[in-house]
């Protein structure tokens, strides 16, 4: 469930950026990695855990903004595939810089509320798992409030629905897309901060997360935030279930087979809207 919650956050970040700019951002996992790594180094340098975490989220957000301004926006007219490759190039770059500036080792963070597990009906539950679940819920609520209550949030939704129309109504879509990148990066980093006490992190941890997050976003239906969250949770549960009851070796296989089956019956994912191609 913890793992699923993190997938959900990555998928959500994916969806936000995709909606505002049609870019499938394969560097999304790097934000999670940065969240964990920067927090660790801040904490190790003597900052209080909370301050280090905020610092990490800010760093990730700045990296997200730079990613958009320096790599995505200049290539605005490129095809979706080209944009994907640009984000992959950017993720190699971010990993490389992290390995040099920070380091290449695995790191962990202390759990926020100790390590003593609760025992509920024979099953054990970690305090940190609750923190993750609680944190993810908070992020979702905050995001929902932002989208429905603020002007910037509403213009984000409008841009997602129809960019040209949004531009015509006077929305600065460039600023809106920047916001989407910043928020996605921050969400990813929060995921990294929350999960690192359980999952550990290192400079190369982002690739796998981006992959799983992408799969979750697609499973839920590309572009649907609710679908992204559900997709992430389902993916995490599937993995846990097959590790415990079927085969640990083919855990990822089970997850992907389920995704394939879902796509064969629902080619637009669980919550995807039917898209109509205009000729």
């Amino acid at each position: 469930m913890t793992v699923g919650a993190i997938y959900a956050l990555v998928a959500l970040g994916f969806t936000l950026i995709y909606n505002s700019s049609d870019v499938a951002n394969f560097a999304q996992g790097e934000f999670v990695m940065l969240g964990g790594m920067v927090t660790f180094f801040g904490y190790a340098a003597g900052l209080p855990l909370f301050v280090a975490a905020v610092l990490a989220i800010v760093v990730a957000a700045v990296v997200g903004l730079l990613l958009y301004r320096l790599a995505i926006e200049p290539a605005r007219r490129a095809s979706p595939v080209t944009l994907i490759i640009i984000t992959i190039g950017a993720s190699i770059f971010i990993r490389g810089v992290t390995a040099i500036v920070l380091d290449k080792n695995f790191h962990s963070l202390p759990s926020f509320f100790g390590n003593e597990p609760f025992v509920i009906g024979g099953a054990t539950l970690l305090p940190q798992s609750l923190v993750v679940m609680f944190g993810v819920s908070l992020v979702l609520i905050a995001l929902w409030l932002f989208m429905s209550r603020t002007l910037r949030g509403k213009s984000l939704l409008a841009t997602a629905a129809n960019r040209t129309a949004a531009q015509l109504t006077g929305i600065n879509t460039r600023a809106v897309t920047s916001t989407a990148f910043v928020i996605s990066a921050a969400i990813g980093a929060i995921g990294g901060v929350l999960a690192t006490p359980i999952t550990l992190t290192y400079y190369d941890a982002g690739t796998l997360l981006a992959l799983k997050g992408f799969a979750a976003a697609v499973l839920g239906g590309m572009g649907n935030p609710l679908g992204a969250v559900v997709g992430g949770l389902v993916l995490g549960l599937l993995e846990q279930f097959s590790a415990g009851y079927l085969s640990s070796q083919y855990k990822d296989a089970v997850a992907f087979i389920v995704i394939l089956l879902v796509l064969f019956t629902m080619p637009q994912g669980l919550f995807g809207a039917k898209s109509v191609e205009r000729v």
Partner: peptide, 17 residues
């Protein structure tokens, strides 16, 4: 005899077994 994936981040199901 239990097995986990090399990149896994949670081995509690196997250890519970």
């Amino acid at each position: 005899d239990e097995i986990y994936g090399a990149a896994d981040s949670d081995m509690t199901p196997q250890l519970t077994n």
